[in-house]
Amino acid sequence: MGWSPMIFKFADGGEEPVPLDPASIRAVLEPHEVGDPRLTAGTGKDGGLEFWVRASDGSEAEIFADARCIAVHRPHAGAVWDIVAELVSRLGAVVFDPSGGGVVCRAEEHAHLPASMRDDVTVIEMTGEALEVALTGS
């Protein structure tokens, strides 16, 4: 079973995630795509995007995106976290920790979270290293 941090964007304290910008997702992930380029076209049943990204150090992750959520499936340790952090920053989004149930975000996104989520947040500078440490402890 894979470990998959989830990325969502919230606005103005609303309880429901808001739509993600597919152009921003593509702009960040396509330069690192090493999988089947036909899958990034959004041709799936739900119009979702699929990426298999590889960072310069060889670390990888499978990334699945739909209109309101991105799943980062089985991210390796290493520079792939830089790609994920860039994606989160570009989208103005937050990351849900699948193991602890908390949220990781920049200070800029904290105020946009629903009030019910604001207490269990780890606020970080959104870098690959800081995000990896916040989610994995290493």
Rank of each mutant, 00 (worst) to 15 (best):
residue 8 F to V: 10
residue 8 F to D: 02
residue 8 F to T: 06
residue 8 F to Y: 12
residue 8 F to H: 05
residue 9 K to W: 02
residue 9 K to L: 05
residue 9 K to M: 05
residue 10 F to T: 06
residue 10 F to L: 14
residue 10 F to G: 08
residue 11 A to C: 12
residue 11 A to T: 13
residue 11 A to V: 15
residue 12 D to R: 13
residue 13 G to W: 08
residue 13 G to P: 06
residue 13 G to C: 11
residue 13 G to E: 11
residue 13 G to D: 10
residue 13 G to Y: 08
residue 14 G to T: 02
residue 14 G to Q: 09
residue 14 G to S: 08
residue 14 G to N: 07
residue 14 G to M: 06
residue 15 E to F: 09
residue 15 E to Q: 14
residue 15 E to C: 09
residue 15 E to V: 10
residue 16 E to D: 15
residue 16 E to H: 13
residue 16 E to N: 14
residue 16 E to P: 05
residue 16 E to G: 07
residue 17 P to L: 04
residue 17 P to W: 00
residue 17 P to D: 01
residue 17 P to R: 00
residue 17 P to F: 02
residue 17 P to S: 04
residue 18 V to P: 02
residue 18 V to K: 01
residue 19 P to A: 15
residue 20 L to E: 01
residue 21 D to P: 05
residue 21 D to I: 10
residue 21 D to F: 08
residue 21 D to E: 13
residue 21 D to Y: 10
residue 22 P to I: 01
residue 22 P to L: 00
residue 22 P to Y: 00
residue 22 P to V: 01
residue 22 P to T: 01
residue 22 P to W: 01
residue 23 A to R: 13
residue 23 A to E: 14
residue 23 A to M: 10
residue 25 I to L: 05
residue 27 A to N: 06
residue 27 A to E: 07
residue 27 A to C: 02
residue 28 V to H: 00
residue 28 V to G: 01
residue 28 V to Q: 02
residue 28 V to Y: 00
residue 28 V to F: 05
residue 29 L to F: 03
residue 29 L to V: 04
residue 29 L to R: 02
residue 29 L to I: 04
residue 30 E to A: 14
residue 30 E to H: 10
residue 30 E to N: 13
residue 31 P to I: 05
residue 31 P to F: 07
residue 31 P to E: 11
residue 32 H to F: 13
residue 32 H to S: 07
residue 33 E to Q: 14
residue 33 E to C: 02
residue 34 V to D: 14
residue 34 V to L: 14
residue 34 V to H: 15
residue 35 G to V: 01
residue 35 G to C: 08
residue 35 G to M: 05
residue 35 G to S: 09
residue 36 D to R: 13
residue 36 D to P: 11
residue 36 D to S: 11
residue 38 R to W: 11
residue 38 R to E: 15
residue 38 R to M: 13
residue 39 L to G: 07
residue 39 L to D: 12
residue 39 L to T: 10
residue 40 T to V: 06
residue 41 A to S: 13
residue 41 A to H: 11
residue 41 A to T: 11
residue 41 A to M: 12
residue 41 A to Y: 06
residue 42 G to L: 05
residue 42 G to C: 06
residue 42 G to Y: 05
residue 42 G to V: 03
residue 43 T to M: 09
residue 43 T to D: 12
residue 44 G to W: 04
residue 44 G to P: 03
residue 44 G to V: 03
residue 44 G to T: 06
